[in-house]
Simulated assay, not measured.
Amino acid sequence: MKTIIKKPHIFFFSLIPLFILIGLIKKEGIIDLTINDTFFAVKINYWCYFSAVFVSLIGLNYYMLFWVKKPTIQILSLFHIIFQVAALIPFIFCLFFLNTKTVFTSNFISDSIDLYQILTISFTLFLISFLLHILNFILTFFRKPA
Rank of each mutant, 00 (worst) to 15 (best):
M1T: 11
K2C: 00
P8D: 05
H9S: 15
H9K: 09
F12H: 01
F13V: 13
P17K: 02
L18A: 05
I20L: 14
G23K: 01
L24Q: 08
I25F: 11
K26C: 09
D32S: 14
L33F: 07
L33Y: 05
I35Y: 13
N36W: 12
A41P: 00
K43V: 00
W47E: 09
C48L: 09
Y49E: 12
S51C: 09
A52L: 07
F54N: 05
S56C: 08
G59S: 10
G59P: 04
Y62P: 01
V68W: 13
K69I: 12
K70Q: 15
P71V: 03
Q74I: 04
S77I: 02
L78F: 15
I81S: 10
I81D: 06
F83L: 14
V85I: 15
V85D: 00
A86K: 08
A86W: 06
A86T: 13
A86F: 12
L88A: 07
I92Y: 05
I92A: 11
I92D: 07
I92N: 03
C94M: 08
F97E: 10
N99L: 01
T100M: 13
T100E: 15
K101D: 15
T105V: 13
D111V: 08
S112C: 02
S112V: 11
D114R: 11
Y116G: 10
I118E: 02
L119H: 04
L119D: 02
T120G: 10
T120R: 09
S122P: 14
F123K: 00
S129F: 01
L132R: 10
H133V: 01
I134Q: 14
L135E: 14
L135H: 14
F137I: 07
P145G: 12
